[in-house]
Design a protein around this nucleic acid. Structure first.
Length: 866
RNA sequence: GGGCGCGUAGCUCAGUUGGUUAGAGCGCCUGCUUCACACGCAGGAGGUCACAGGUUCGAGUCCUGUCGCGCCCACCA
């Protein structure tokens, strides 16, 4: 059998990725099963290819899913993608611009056609990437948020919410992105601290030549739309202005002075200009005082006709001109530098303009109540727990959700406007006549829904809702959601609200929130920084398994994940280590004339299996150790402690299986030995180790597992094999104690050799402590092989004792000091009445045991030093 | 302004309900091409757990405060 020295992932991974899909290994059963584990993917945007953050998410999901599948659960990982309204439309528009095209000249239908073409191309790319990265999804259940079925669910939800009065349409102030030409929800606006100015402007008081009031603003251009100046009723400085009017400069329009709490006497001059059409606070104040709303900025961010001489100017140009003009008129009191939070569009970073427009909204308070309750009662659990607080924080202060977008790509709002009487008809399917006047002149609302409206239904719309499908019955509520904190409000919160409302049941039981992937310098990865890691590039270079392992090793709950080439190099080394352990076995099997035959598992190493099968102590030891490892790994995965699971696997395989077990087994690999008990045990141990490693490193383990032949029927894939579980009867304390003692002796002898300055190959005589003799004699050959030391009993003792080197003496002295300190500490603790009465028994017991150990060791060191 | 989190070896981070000598990977130093693996083997150096108090028999872990850093939310012009 030809096996290369170095594991080449590129040769095997694509092959297995395809085979898994073709053989349907990952398909969930539609039949009820006592244990069901289901999870829906956070659907990636169709806009682009997957980045390393997706790979982390998918690695974590995949480990969990594979683990459940191997435990025999009926397991579903439902894949799919999101149409991502604004993001996708933006990308396609940009693409069209390169061709010199514009969506407005193309027309809606033509444009949507182009987006679908884009989707076909990129949606496929995402699927290909995921398959290549080993994601064990059930591709037969793949969904897209704009699929007919999911669109039906969207219309159903919209209509029901509307009928329940939870969706309304109205004229309100919304965040408007002048670049994207659409309204945005509050969540889609990012407030970014920016260095700006605070302009203090004098507004002359009407009929009072000298008097004026000074207002401060960060946006002077909006003064053109001012319809009042507000002062606080309790502010003694402005009592003379009550019931007066001021002259609005530049526009020469009298505006009233109103009394409103909007004006904070502590801030600025205590007087504030009111622009009801362009500021959310002013909008509210305007409603309270019935002020006119003068719109001076339009959807393009340009000044309207109402802005008089400034009409047609860009809003920022207008600001400059307004300030210049005020200065010329001597109405500019002063300008101060000022730090303010500017709202920017989450997608295109354009400065958002608050505008009054007619939009559709969801009344969120009633939905939030249920969503709060299910988390409060612990029916939904966040991991790590502290996200619960963030979730509540947002839910308690939730505001109505603007769901209409002036885009073309997305779910068209299922509302029709009657051209005759203006009636609005909300319906599941297009109505033919107006419900009020009977006219057939109906036009569908041009707007589409916020992307998150459809993703909010994802856990049940993907399973067939509103139909009561088998899948829905079986897999809803889903077991777990694994996602990032950046979409906690956007997505997770809305799924909980909508799931509780429409299914009457939570969408998932647990939410695991993973961290952000950062680069070696702990920086956030972003395209502008140019520090992104492309999953395909690094998997090509290091192998999928290595990259997965690197991600998992860093994936401690609640922390960000640092990924660097260094890390992937070390995990690649680990993959190679597994490969070479297999190589050792395969090469020796050939020499021994052993067909790579996989024995039935347990009978080979269990002492109870009968006297006919020899079970060497190292076999008993490795199975006992592997049992412990399985226990810990299972518990770690169960608690989403992926980094711990990965580290346990690493340590077990490298430092126990390879460093000790295989080394101990080497003498058994004899020429033409045939398939003896030793071989059976080695192969059984190796096969079990592969299964243990499989969720973390699926490709390598599948490749090696398939190369092991079997004498008994087994699943077609290691992905369907049984995951090793802890078994009480596999614990073998006697074997562990003996091998531990052996390890201690070998390490001691190795150190002795180094202290003597002997080269690795040199053998030397070394005495054995009396208590080690029983073990030492039995393992003398092994000790000699692994340490180079010939122990007393093997050979006559040397005439002169081995002289101690300086380095050795230093080391021992240091050890001695440390031990003395520990002994003092332990003795003090053990003579402390309070400690003895309060500390748990096992702590006291272990401290006693350790103390004895320290004392013995100290005695040895003292004699050695003399 | 409110909320969350971080500060542990040169670097990047683990450290589950407090329990005795604080761990890993990388890097560094020493010695080895030993017939699975130099993506390797054997060994080693390196930490007053940010700082100051407190609770406790016992604190990296719990409490208070200080300093430094990050993230999220929020309409103070």
């Amino acid at each position: 059998m030809q096996i290369e020295k170095v594991y080449e992932p590129q040769r095997f991974e694509p092959h297995w990725a395809q085979w898994w899909i073709d053989s349907g290994v990952f398909h969930a059963s539609a039949k009820p099963h006592p244990r069901v584990f289901s999870l829906v993917i956070p659907p990636p945007n169709v806009t682009g290819s997957l980045h390393i953050g997706h790979m982390l998410e998918h690695a974590e999901i995949d480990v969990t899913i594979r683990w459940h599948r191997m435990r025999g659960d009926n397991t579903l990982w439902l894949p799919g993608t999101d149409h991502a309204g604004i993001a996708t439309q933006m990308v396609v528009e940009r693409k069209l611009a390169e061709e010199g095209l514009d969506r407005r000249t193309m027309g809606r239908d033509k444009f949507i056609e182009r987006v679908w073409e884009w989707k076909a191309q990129y949606g496929d790319q995402i699927k290909r990437q995921m398959i290549r990265l080993g994601a064990s999804c059930d591709w037969s259940r793949e969904r897209f948020t704009l699929d007919p079925g999911l669109s039906r669910a969207v219309r159903e939800v919209f209509v029901r919410l509307y009928e329940k009065g939870l969706i309304y349409r109205g004229e309100y102030m919304v965040n408007w992105c002048p670049r994207c030409q659409t309204a945005l929800s509050d969540l889609e606006v990012k407030n970014i601290e920016t260095q700006g100015h605070l302009w203090h402007i004098r507004y002359p008081v009407s009929d009072s030549a000298a008097a004026h009031v000074i207002v401060a603003t960060t946006r002077p251009e909006t003064m053109l739309g001012d319809t009042a100046v507000a002062v606080n009723a309790k502010d003694p400085r402005y009592t003379h202005l009550h019931d007066r009017t001021v002259e609005l400069p530049l526009m020469n329009r009298p505006i009233p002075v109103i009394l409103d709490d909007l004006a904070d006497p502590q801030f600025g001059t205590g007087a504030v200009k009111v622009t009801p059409a362009h500021d959310p606070n002013d909008f509210e104040a305007g409603k309270r005082h019935d002020l006119p709303r003068i719109r001076v900025i339009d959807e393009n961010g340009r000044m309207t006709a109402a802005a008089g001489p400034y009409a047609g100017l860009d809003r920022f140009e207008a600001r400059k001109r307004v300030v210049e003009d005020l200065e010329r008129l001597g109405l500019l009191e002063k300008v101060e530098p000022y730090t303010l939070a500017i709202g920017r569009c989450d997608r295109c970073k354009a400065i958002v303009e608050p505008l009054i427009s007619t939009q559709w909204f969801v009344r969120t308070k009633p939905l939030a109540e249920k969503a709060i309750a299910v988390v409060e009662t612990g029916r939904i659990q966040f991991i790590p727990e502290n996200w619960t607080k963030t979730y509540f924080e947002w839910m308690y202060n939730i505001r109505d959700w603007c769901i209409s977008r002036q885009l073309w790509w997305g779910h068209r709002i299922p509302a029709w406007h009657c051209q005759e009487c203006g009636e609005i008809i909300v319906a599941r399917e297009a109505p033919s006549n107006c419900a009020r006047c009977g006219s057939s002149q109906l036009l569908q609302d041009p707007d589409v829904l916020d992307t998150w409206f459809s993703s909010g239904l994802w856990p049940f719309s993907t399973l067939g809702w509103p139909d009561q499908t088998e899948d829905l019955k079986l897999f809803y509520p889903t077991s777990l959601l694994i996602t990032g904190f950046d979409i906690l409000f956007f997505w997770v919160a809305r799924m909980i609200m909508l799931g509780c409302e429409f299914m009457g049941e939570i969408p998932f039981r647990q939410v695991y929130i993973h961290g952000l992937v950062r680069d070696a310098e702990r920086q956030k990865m972003s395209k502008t920084r140019g520090n992104t890691i492309d999953p395909l590039v690094v998997t090509e270079k290091y192998g999928t398994d290595a990259v997965r392992m690197a991600l998992l090793l860093g994936a401690a709950p609640g922390t960000d994940i640092v990924l660097s080439e260094d890390r992937m190099e070390s995990t690649r080394a680990f993959a190679n280590k597994i490969w070479n352990a297999a190589r050792l076995l395969f090469v020796n099997m050939e020499r021994s004339g052993v067909e790579p035959w996989l024995p039935n598992r347990l009978e080979t190493f269990r002492p109870e299996a009968g006297p006919s099968i020899e079970v060497a102590i190292e076999d008993r030891w490795i199975f006992s150790r592997m049992n412990t490892c399985a226990e810990q790994v299972n518990r770690a995965i169960e608690q989403y402690r992926y980094h711990e699971a990965a580290q346990l696997l690493w340590h077990f395989f490298w430092h126990e299986f390879c460093d000790w077990y295989l080394e101990l087994k080497k003498p058994c690999f004899q020429e033409n030995s045939g398939l003896n008990a030793d071989w059976r045990n080695v192969l059984a141990a190796f096969e079990t180790a592969l299964r243990l490693l499989h969720p973390a490193m699926p490709f390598l383990t599948e490749e090696l597992w398939q190369r092991l032949k079997d004498n008994a029927p087994r699943p077609v894939s290691i992905a369907l094999a049984e995951y090793p579980q802890y078994r009480r009867d596999h614990v073998d304390h006697a074997a562990e104690r003996e091998i531990e003692e052996l390890q201690k002796i070998v390490l001691e002898k190795r150190n002795a050799r180094i202290a003597l300055n002997l080269p690795p190959k040199a053998t030397f005589y070394s005495p054995l402590a009396p208590e080690q003799e029983a073990v030492g004699q039995r393992w003398s050959d092994t000790i000699r092989r692994l340490s180079g030391a010939i122990i007393v009993g093997d050979m006559p003792a040397p005439d002169a004792p081995v002289p101690m080197t300086e380095a050795d003496r230093r080391r021992l002295t240091k050890q001695k000091e440390q031990l003395e300190k520990n002994i003092t500490n332990s003795r003090r603790q053990l003579s402390d009445e309070t400690f003895l009465s309060r500390a748990p028994e096992h702590v006291v017991a272990s401290m006693r045991a350790k103390l004895t150990e320290y004392e013995a060791e100290l005695a040895k060191i003292i004699t050695a030093l003399e």
